[in-house]
Nucleic acid binder design. Structure first.
Length: 599
RNA sequence: CGGGGCGUAGCGCAGCCUGGUCAGCGCACCUGCCUUGGGAGCAGGGGGUCGGUGGUUCGAAUCCACUCGCCCCGACCA
C-alpha cells in the first residue's frame, strides 16, 4: 500500500462504529461529516451539464472514473441503497424472489437465442484463457431462461418471479449526463415465468402495480406509457417515464383520454389539409428540391406535397412517402421493414434513376410504403425527372403503396383515440416492462409439463428498473439554485444536524443529544461536526439536500431552542432544545408520506 | 460512427490569433494572526513534464502533423 506523504492530512476516514453495526441492513445509521468522504465542490466541474450531473458531482455523491463509469461516494451509495431497499420491499410484496446471476456469460447461451449475432458493438465480448467466447451481461433474459429451463419442470412450479439487482455492462455509443447513461450500471431486473398468456398478464400487472408504488415512494413524477417492444420481442411493453428536460426520450400524452406513448410508436392525427383542386400536370421546378423550396416556388403549403425518401433495408430499397409537413419516425419504418438507413445520394440515383429532390411515387418499381395521412387528397411530388414535379397526384389512382403509420407525432396533433390535442413531453426512462412470450423459452428449451403431461414453453415477461436513473431523475425534478432537495424516501439521511459553533460546549452538548436521540429513534442522521464556519455548513447542507436540517446555534440556545429548517421550502420553525429529538422524530415521521406519484 | 468544442496546479479559468519576463488569476491546501448564524479578513507559503508524440524555429503552452482523453449535438440504445 502506498503511504501518504507525511504532513498530508487525510479527510477520508471511516464512518462511526455505530454505523458499522447497522451497515448490514443499510437502514438506520448515522455519520459524522468530519469522518466521511463528502468532497463538496464550490464550483461546477466543466464536464457537467445536466442538473443532476452537476449537483451530484458538486455535492460529493459521485465521481467519474472514465467516460460512462462512475464511482458512488458514501452519500451516493446510501441513496442507491435506499432506492434498492424500496425496490426490494415492493418486489417482496408481489412475491418476487431475489437471487444473483453472474455478470460474465458464456457465449453459447446468447448464441442460442441469436442475440450474440444480432447485437453489435454494444456488447462487451472477451475470451477466457481457454479461448472460449464470453460476454459481459447487458441484460439477463438468456441466463434467467437457462436457469428456468433446468429448474422448472411442472406447471405446479409456476408461476415464478425471479429478480436481481445486478451490474449490467453495455459499451454505449454515447454515455451522457453523469449517471443517466453509463456503460456500467446497476439494474433491478425481474423475470416472470407463467404457463400461459393469462398468467403473464397477471405477472405483468403485478409489476405495473409494484412499479407505481416504487416510483411514488421514490418521490418521482412519472408516466406509464406504451413502448416499442423492439428486439426484446413479444406482445406488449410499457415504459415508466419521469418528465425532465434532461431526458432522452419524448412521449405523447393526451390529457382527455389518457393515451400515453413513446413517440417512437405514438399514433397521431395531424391537422387536416385544406382541400384544394389541381389538374394533373408536370411542372418545371428548376433547382427546387426540398418541400419548402418547391412549396414556396409553387405557392402551395407543404401539406399538399408528398415527401419521398429512399431508405435501404436488409431486403432492399424502400421508398417512403410522407405528407410534406410531416416527419418520418424511423422506428415505425423499422418495425415495418426491418433495420434500415437513409440511402446515400449515389444510391438514390442508381436505384431510382433520379437525384434526391425530384423523387416521386409514380412509376417506381421499388417497394413503397406510405404514411396513412396520405390516403386522401391531391398532392404535388417529384416527377422522377430532374427539375420537374408533378401536380394533381391522387394516391391509389396514380400510385400504390403499403399503408402504415410512419409519421412522427407532434404537439398539437389529434389524439388517435379521442381527437383531443396531444402534448409532447421530454422524459427520462426509469423503468420498463415487457411481455416476452416464448421468445427466449423456446430456443433455450424452457418447457414445463401441464396436467396432461403435455409439454409447453414457459411464457415470460421481463421488467427493469434503473436505480441510478431514479436518483438522477429525482435530482432533476427536485433541486433549486442552492442544490439538491431529496425526496424523503430516498435521501441519504432523514436529518442533518448543524452545530454552528464547535467551540461552544452547549452547542456541542445539545447537538450530540439530538444526534443520539434521533439515532435511537431509528432516524438516519448526519451531523456536520466539522470545525467550519456557519456559512460553510449552511451552504453544504443545502447542496447535499437532506430534507430536514436541525440548526443548533448559540443564538437559539440563548432562548432554549434549536431550529428546524425544511430544505424544500426553506421554512424554519423552532423546537425546545430540551428533548428536541422526540419532537424532531415526530416531524420526520409525518413528512415521510410520499409526495409525488403517477402524473 | 458523423458534426462541434475542450485538455494549462485538486477545482474553475486567463494566456494561444500576433512564438521571446506567460508559468498566471480565483477557489481549495499549509503556517500565523484575527474572525465565528449563509462558502470571512490580513500576512506568508507549497504545488504545474501547459494531455502525449513528432515536427517547424535561435526559441513553442502559443504554429503544423499525428495521437490519447473528455464534453455537447446527431445516429445508436436489445
Amino acid at each position: 500500500m502506498k503511504r501518504r506523504p507525511e504532513g498530508v492530512r487525510t479527510r477520508v476516514v471511516h464512518c462511526d462504529v455505530g454505523f458499522l453495526k447497522t451497515l448490514k441492513t443499510f437502514h438506520g445509521g448515522h455519520m459524522r461529516f468530519s469522518k466521511t468522504c463528502v468532497p463538496t465542490l464550490r464550483e461546477t466541474p466543466s464536464e457537467a451539464e445536466a442538473a443532476s450531473h452537476r449537483l451530484l458531482l458538486r455535492a460529493g455523491y459521485i465521481r467519474r472514473l472514465a467516460s460512462g463509469l462512475y464511482i458512488f461516494m458514501p452519500l451516493g451509495w446510501r441513496v442507491m441503497e435506499r432506492i434498492n431497499a424500496v425496490i426490494r420491499e415492493e418486489m417482496a410484496r408481489i412475491g418476487a424472489q431475489e437471487l444473483l446471476l453472474p455478470v460474465l456469460h458464456p457465449a453459447d447461451i446468447w448464441q442460442k437465442t441469436g442475440r450474440w449475432f444480432e447485437i453489435g458493438e454494444e456488447m462487451f465480448r472477451l475470451r477466457d484463457r481457454t479461448g472460449r467466447d464470453m460476454c459481459l451481461g447487458m441484460t439477463h433474459e438468456e441466463i434467467m431462461t437457462w436457469l428456468a429451463s433446468r429448474e422448472i419442470r411442472s406447471y405446479r412450479e409456476l408461476p415464478q418471479v425471479w429478480y436481481q439487482i445486478q451490474t449490467k455492462l453495455r459499451d454505449e455509443a454515447r454515455p451522457k449526463s453523469g449517471i443517466m447513461r453509463t456503460r456500467e450500471f446497476i439494474m433491478k431486473d425481474s423475470y416472470s415465468f407463467d404457463r400461459d398468456e393469462n398468467g403473464l398478464a397477471r405477472s405483468y400487472s403485478l409489476h405495473e402495480e409494484a412499479y407505481h408504488r416504487i416510483f411514488r415512494r421514490c418521490g418521482l413524477r412519472f408516466y406509464q406509457v406504451e413502448s416499442d417492444p423492439g428486439m426484446m420481442g413479444g406482445a406488449g411493453a410499457h415504459e415508466f417515464m419521469a418528465p425532465s428536460p434532461a431526458g432522452e426520450d419524448d412521449i405523447a400524452l393526451c390529457a382527455s383520454c389518457g393515451y400515453a406513448a413513446n413517440v417512437e410508436l405514438a399514433r397521431s392525427v395531424p391537422p387536416e389539409a385544406e382541400p384544394v383542386e389541381m389538374p394533373f400536370e408536370e411542372v418545371h421546378t428548376p433547382g427546387k428540391r426540398t418541400v419548402q423550396e418547391v412549396s414556396a416556388f409553387l405557392g402551395l403549403s407543404p401539406e399538399h406535397f408528398i415527401k419521398s425518401l429512399l431508405y435501404v433495408s436488409d431486403s432492399g430499397p424502400v421508398l417512403v412517402l410522407l405528407r410534406g409537413d410531416q416527419e418520418l419516425q424511423e422506428r415505425k419504418l423499422q418495425r415495418l421493414v426491418g433495420p434500415c438507413r437513409p440511402a446515400r445520394k449515389e444510391e438514390v440515383v442508381e436505384i431510382l434513376g433520379v437525384e434526391p429532390g425530384f423523387i416521386g411515387p409514380m412509376g417506381q418499381q421499388v417497394r413503397t410504403v406510405a404514411d396513412e395521412v396520405l390516403r386522401e387528397g391531391v398532392y404535388v411530388s417529384g416527377a422522377n425527372r430532374a427539375d420537374h414535379h408533378v401536380k394533381g397526384i391522387r394516391p391509389g389512382r396514380d400510385f400504390t403503396a403499403e399503408w402504415a403509420d410512419l409519421h412522427l407525432a407532434k404537439a398539437g396533433d389529434g389524439c388517435s383515440a379521442c381527437g383531443s390535442p396531444l402534448r409532447i413531453e421530454r422524459v427520462i426512462e426509469i423503468g420498463n416492462i415487457f411481455k416476452l412470450g416464448t421468445k427466449y423459452s423456446v430456443p433455450l428449451k424452457a418447457y414445463y409439463l401441464d396436467e396432461n403431461g403435455k409439454e409447453h414453453p414457459i411464457v415470460m415477461g421481463s421488467y427493469g428498473i434503473g436505480p441510478a436513473r431514479i436518483a438522477a431523475a429525482a435530482v432533476e425534478q427536485n433541486h433549486d439554485d442552492n442544490g439538491i432537495i431529496w425526496p424523503e424516501g430516498i435521501a441519504p439521511f432523514d436529518a442533518m444536524v448543524l452545530p454552528l459553533q464547535m467551540n461552544s460546549e452547549d452547542v456541542l452538548r445539545v447537538s450530540e443529544e439530538i444526534y443520539r436521540g434521533l439515532t435511537d429513534r431509528g432516524i438516519d442522521v448526519f451531523i456536520d461536526d466539522r470545525d467550519e464556519r456557519a456559512g460553510v455548513k449552511f451552504k453544504d447542507a443545502d447542496l447535499i439536500g437532506i430534507p430536514l436540517q436541525v440548526i443548533v446555534g448559540e443564538k437559539g440556545l440563548r432562548d432554549g431552542v434549536v431550529e428546524l429548517k425544511t430544505r424544500r421550502t426553506g421554512e424554519k420553525r423552532t423546537v425546545k432544545a430540551d428533548d428536541a429529538a422526540g419532537e424532531i422524530a415526530e416531524v420526520i415521521r409525518r413528512a415521510r408520506q410520499p409526495a409525488a406519484g403517477s402524473a
